[in-house]
Amino acid sequence: MATGGRRGAAAAPLLVAVAALLLGAAGHLYPGEVCPGMDIRNNLTRLHELENCSVIEGHLQILLMFKTRPEDFRDLSFPKLIMITDYLLLFRVYGLESLKDLFPNLTVIRGSRLFFNYALVIFEMVHLKELGLYNLMNITRGSVRIEKNNELCYLATIDWSRILDSVEDNYIVLNKDDNEECGDICPGTAKGKTNCPATVINGQFVERCWTHSHCQKVCPTICKSHGCTAEGLCCHSECLGNCSQPDDPTKCVACRNFYLDGRCVETCPPPYYHFQDWRCVNFSFCQDLHHKCKNSRRQGCHQYVIHNNKCIPECPSGYTMNSSNLLCTPCLGPCPKVCHLLEGEKTIDSVTSAQELRGCTVINGSLIINIRGGNNLAAELEANLGLIEEISGYLKIRRSYALVSLSFFRKLRLIRGETLEIGNYSFYALDNQNLRQLWDWSKHNLTITQGKLFFHYNPKLCLSEIHKMEEVSGTKGRQERNDIALKTNGDQASCENELLKFSYIRTSFDKI
C-alpha cells in the first residue's frame, strides 16, 4: 500500500482533458527560462521544448504516446526543470519506465491550478516501474492521483506527508504495488545497510526511497516546507523545498512566496507586481503582455491589467481597466465587458449561442446573426445582446428569417469595421425574408467608422429604411451602385405612401 494514499474509496472516473512563447529569463536562482504550460502528445517531438525550461508557468501534460519505446527515452533528460506552477499529468506514455532521468531536479509542483483537485496525476502508464522524482520536495496545493499503472512499484516507500501538507485526498490505487509483488529495495538494503531515512506512518517504520538508488530526502521537522541542505541544516524561511546553503534567500532552489532578481522575498516591493503567484514583474512586463494579447485571437491570451499590486489576466467583477495605466478602477454604474472572439468572429444561430455573449459591452471581433427560429426570440436576444455598444469588426445579418427588427441591439452605437466582410463591408444584410426595420432612427444613433453597407434580398425592408441608415451611420456616399439592390429590397412591402385627393359631386333626387 502506498504510504499516505487512500484505498478502496469510491472515486469519480478520471477524465483526461485534452506555445513556446518565453516569458522571460528567471535569473540567477533558476538555471534556465520560464516556459508556458505545455500539452505534449502523440510523439516526442515537442518534448524537446523543455530543454531550457527551469519553470513551467502553467501545467505540463505528457500523454497518448503509443509508439514510443524505452530506448526512445534513454537520452532524454531535462535537468534544468525545477518547478511547475500548476500540475504534472502523465497518461498512456508507452515505453517510459521512470522519471528519474527525465526530470531529475523537479523540486516543486505548486498546484496553482489543479487537474480535478490533483497536482500530480500518473494514470495508465503501462510501462512505468517507478516514479523516480527523487528531488520532489513540495506539492504546495492539491493532491496526488496514481492509478492503474500495472508495473509501478516504489510507492509504499514514499512518505507523501513530507511532500504535501495533507495526504487525506491522495488516491493511489490499482498499481502493481497493490499486489505486494514489488519487493522494493532501498539503497544499501541488499548489503544489509540502512542508507535512507525511515519514518513512521500508520504504525509502520519504513525506509523512504524513490528507487533502488535514490533515497527520499527527509528534512528535520523544524525546517517545515522550506527544505534543508545535504547536511540537514534548514533553508531560509522564504525558500521552498530545498537550498544549497542554509538561511540564505539567494540560495533557495525555489521560493515559498515570490522570486525577485535572484532572491526569494515575502512580497513584491514597489515598483514590482505579483505575477502568477510566484514571481515579481515590473510595469513594462505587464504592459507588454497586455499589448501582445490586445489584437491576438490565441486562446488563453489575456490583456493583463494591474489590481491590488498584482498583474492579473482581467479586472475583477465591479472594476474596469483604465487604459492609460492598466489599473483596475471601480465602475460607475454597470461595468464594461470586452469579449474577445477566439477566431475573430462568432455566429449567433440560437439563443444558446447568444447567451455566451451575455453582459458583453464591447465585441472584439465580428458578429454573424443567422437565426431561423426560436421561442420568445426578441426578448431572449435583447437579454443577451442588448448591452453590446461596440463591435470592432463587422455585423452580418444573414438568412435570419425569424427577425423582424434589429432593435434587440438596443445599445449598439459603434461598428468600427477594423475587419470587413469580403474585404469591403462593415454591415452586411443578406436574404432576411421578414426583416422590416433596422432601428427606430428617431431614437437610435449608430456610427460606422469604416467599410460599406450591403443589402440584398431583404424583400420587406424598404429602401427608405436603408437610406436612413446611410445618413445616420455616416456611410452615405461610400456605397457603390450594386451594394444596395434596388429590386430585391422592399419588393414585397408597401414602401411608397402617396396622399390621394378626392373630389365629389353631391346629387339628390331633384338636383344634379
Rank of each mutant, 00 (worst) to 15 (best):
L120M: 06
N117A: 11
L240K: 07
H236I: 02
P336I: 15
A156H: 08
C228T: 03
S98I: 03
F78V: 04
L90E: 00
S77Y: 13
Q303N: 07
E57G: 03
R113P: 03
N52S: 06
Y259L: 04
K67G: 03
T189S: 11
M321E: 01
L44S: 08
V206S: 15
N135R: 08
H290S: 06
V144C: 04
D86L: 00
N170E: 05
F275M: 05
N149W: 01
F78E: 01
C53G: 00
C293S: 03
R279A: 10
T329L: 08
T85D: 01
I172G: 11
I172H: 04
M137I: 09
D159P: 12
L89N: 01
N175S: 12
S296E: 15
Y30R: 01
M83N: 00
W210V: 06
D277R: 11
V218H: 11
Y319C: 10
E181T: 08
N43E: 10
F275R: 02
R141M: 08
I163W: 02
S324K: 14
G241E: 03
N325A: 13
K100S: 14
H226G: 13
G188C: 06
N43H: 06
V121F: 02
Y304P: 05
N308H: 07
N138A: 06
S166H: 08
A198P: 12
G262M: 08
G203R: 10
P79I: 04
V265L: 09
C35N: 00
N135I: 00
M137T: 08
S225A: 09
L64D: 15
Y304N: 10
D184T: 04
P270E: 08
Y118A: 14
E97R: 13
N309C: 04
R113I: 14
K176V: 08
Q287A: 15
V121C: 07
D159L: 14
K310F: 06
K191A: 06
S166Y: 08
C301Y: 09
R256E: 05
C35Y: 00
M137Q: 13
F205M: 07
H307K: 09
C280G: 01
C235Q: 00
E147G: 09
T250E: 11
M137Y: 12
P330V: 14
S324N: 08
P70M: 10
V34P: 07
V126I: 05
D178P: 05
V93R: 00
R263D: 07
V200S: 13
Y319F: 14
H290R: 03
I122G: 02
G95M: 02
K191D: 02
T107A: 08
Q299W: 03
W210N: 06
Y171F: 10
E97L: 06
L99Y: 01
T157E: 14
M83P: 00
G37R: 03
P313L: 05
L99A: 04
D184P: 04
N117D: 02
Y134S: 12
F103S: 00
E180Y: 09
C286S: 05
Y272G: 02
C331V: 13
L99F: 10
Q61E: 13
C280Y: 00
E97Y: 08
I139D: 01
D184A: 10
H302W: 12
G142Q: 01
N150K: 08
S225E: 03
E238A: 10
V121S: 09
E168Y: 03
N325V: 07
F66Q: 04
D72C: 14
D169G: 14
V173E: 11
Q299Y: 03
P313R: 05
P316Y: 04
H212L: 14
E130A: 09
S284L: 08
Q204N: 14
P249A: 12
Y134R: 12
I158D: 05
M83W: 02
E130N: 10
L88H: 00
R141P: 01
N308Q: 10
K292C: 11
W210A: 07
L102Y: 01
G227T: 09
G203Y: 11
K80I: 06
Q245E: 12
E57K: 03
I306W: 06
I82N: 04
V200W: 05
D86P: 00
I306S: 02
P336H: 13
V108C: 07
R279C: 02
E151V: 13
Q216V: 11
S323D: 15
R162P: 11
C243T: 00
D288V: 10
N309E: 08
I163D: 01
L50S: 01
P187E: 13
E130C: 02
L332G: 13
V173S: 07
T85V: 06
V34H: 03
D169H: 15
C182L: 05
I84S: 00
G318V: 03
L89T: 06
T267Y: 15
L326Y: 13
G300F: 04
R256G: 04
L240Q: 06
L76Q: 06
E49A: 07
G333F: 06
N42E: 12
D288S: 10
F66A: 08
C153Q: 08
T211D: 07
L164V: 15
L240G: 07
N175V: 02
L260P: 00
S225M: 06
L89G: 01
Q299F: 06
S213C: 14
L76H: 13
N202T: 10
S112K: 13
F78Q: 02
D248Q: 12
T329H: 06
P31T: 13
K80L: 07
G142K: 01
S323E: 13
R41Q: 05
I185A: 02
I146P: 00
T68S: 11
V121T: 06
P31L: 11
R263C: 05
S225G: 07
S161C: 07
M125K: 00
E151F: 04
S213M: 12
T229I: 09
P36T: 10
Y273I: 02
L332I: 08
F103H: 00
N170S: 06
P334K: 14
L174N: 09
F283W: 05
G183N: 05
W210E: 07
D165H: 08
L152R: 01
Y304S: 04
E207T: 08
Y154L: 04
T157W: 02
S98D: 01
D247H: 15
S112L: 14
T194I: 12
L90Y: 01
V305T: 08
M321Y: 14
D184W: 15
S244F: 14
R41A: 13
Y171G: 13
P197W: 06
S143R: 09
I306T: 07
T199G: 07
L81R: 00
N257E: 09
D184H: 08
Q303L: 09
R110M: 12
T140W: 03
C280P: 00
V55W: 02
P246G: 09
C53D: 00
H302L: 05
G32R: 14
E180L: 12
H274T: 14
P271M: 06
A119Q: 01
L120T: 01
S166T: 15
